[in-house]
């Protein structure tokens, strides 16, 4: 029984929308009910981007994730400031601690601090910070199987960029490892 409502937010270019889409597609591959709803507006490069993803066993009524998020992936400080209130008590909060220096302001949520941008840079590509976070998310929530994320990513990368699978898998594993470490 899965019932995950997630807000993913950051600034344009951090791969927030793609991260949400991979999660959605992974859920679909597993035959779960899924929806992906992006914010849209007069957006600009470097501006904020966010999306709400639902992965659950039961059919989805409202696709809007607002005030009822069971988990959040926050990639920069303005996102954390804006969306922390939308987590339900006991919700899981993943914070990109490479760019967010503050801690969660609520004590009724489970916060994890993942230095995803640093890990991505260490692996040689700053663009894969989103995969580090996704690895952490999947480890933490179990909303989908890692294999489904990889399958979704493979279909998105296509043959021409198939060589990028390896580094993405490494990023994913590093994110998962961070959660394991902090959970203990």
């Amino acid at each position: 029984m899965v019932n995950e409502r997630t807000i993913l937010a950051g600034f344009g270019g951090q791969g927030v929308m793609l991260m949400g889409q991979l999660l959605t597609q992974a859920g679909m591959i597993e035959g779960k009910e899924v929806s992906w709803l992006p914010s849209y507006g007069p957006e600009m490069r470097g501006g904020t981007a966010n999306c709400g993803v639902i992965v659950q066993t039961e059919p989805i009524s409202s696709p809007v994730v607002e005030g009822n998020a069971t988990s959040e992936i926050m990639m920069n400080t303005p996102s954390l400031d804006k969306f922390e209130k939308d987590l339900v008590p006991g919700g899981k909060l993943l914070i990109n601690s490479s760019l967010i220096s503050k801690k969660a302001s609520r004590d009724d949520v489970e916060a994890y601090y993942i230095p995803s941008s640093d890990i991505a840079n260490e692996l040689g590509d700053t663009r894969i910070a989103n995969m580090v976070m996704l690895g952490a998310f999947v480890e933490l929530t179990g909303a989908v199987e890692p294999e489904s994320i990889f399958q979704a990513l493979e279909s998105r990368l296509g043959l021409a960029r198939a060589h990028l699978m390896d580094i993405n898998k490494q990023a994913f594993a590093r994110g998962a490892a961070c959660v394991k470490e902090q959970r203990n």
């Binding site: 889409q21 959605t24 679909m28 899924v34 929806s35 992906w36 709803l37 992006p38 849209y40 696709p63 809007v64």
Partner: peptide
């Protein structure tokens, strides 16, 4: 409306 136009579903 904007929601149905912009959202992704299977």
């Amino acid at each position: 409306d904007g929601v149905i136009g912009q959202m992704m579903e299977p």
